[in-house]
């Protein structure tokens, strides 16, 4: 049984190399002393707000105007914590003699954060960008029922959603901008094609 023969702690080292007895003990003391002179790791949370990364999953905000009551979020939610009620309304025809249209009107949109597991599938799956992650996290309640956030509360969270982080400099152009640029380029090309055509027209 190889046990340190004394507290010097030089056992366990390869036999060939000589170590000063007690150097391990001194090293230990040096480590603690060095740590003492360094900055502490403690986050003083309630006094100092934490610096959260921009994509923090704190709470989900609802941008109601974008919601078409397609129910995709509610159906994809793994723990069924999204409640949606809606009814259909008929919209009078836009032009006289046109056909009446029907439209979904949102009656209730609620997320039960006591069930939510913050997977973010609803945010991912929403085709109309109506759900967003917000980094706010201080919404603990003393009554579990209070954790069901109704649409007005979800709307309030929406205002805390930060602007999306800037794209990587080498990233591909966002689709909207690419599409807009394409259209603008087309128009410009058209104008170009028309411009040289004009003097030709005069000639003819």
């Amino acid at each position: 049984m190889s046990r340190p023969s004394s507290a010097a702690g030089s056992a366990g080292k390869p036999a060939g190399r000589f170590t000063i007895p007690g150097s391990g003990l001194a090293k230990g003391l040096a480590v603690t002393l060095r740590t003492m002179t360094r900055k502490t790791q403690t986050r003083q949370y309630p006094d100092v707000q934490p610096e959260l990364p921009p994509r923090t999953r704190g709470v989900i905000g609802l941008f109601e105007e974008n919601c078409t009551v397609c129910m995709l979020c509610a159906r994809e939610c793994p723990d069924w914590c999204i409640y949606i009620d809606s009814h259909k309304e008929t919209v009078p025809p836009a032009t006289p003699g046109g056909r009446e249209r029907s439209r979904n009107v949102l009656d209730r949109f609620a997320i039960d954060f006591s069930l939510c597991m913050y997977c973010g599938i609803c945010v991912e799956v929403c085709p109309f960008d109506a759900l967003f992650w917000s980094p706010e996290f201080e919404y603990a309640e003393t009554d579990i029922r209070e954790l069901v956030h109704e649409r007005d509360r979800l709307r309030e969270w929406m205002w805390t959603v930060p602007a999306p982080p800037a794209l990587d400099p080498a990233a591909e152009e966002p689709k909207e901008i690419a599409a807009a640029r394409k259209a603008a380029d087309k128009l410009a090309a058209q104008a170009q094609a028309e411009q040289p055509g004009r003097p030709g027209e005069g000639d003819a």
């Binding site: 603690t32 002393l33 740590t35 003492m36 502490t40 790791q41």
Partner: peptide, 13 residues
């Protein structure tokens, strides 16, 4: 305090 700072903590505040 000393123990806290040696462990990278703040200790009682």
């Amino acid at each position: 305090k000393v123990m806290a700072h040696m462990q990278g903590r703040l200790g009682p505040m």
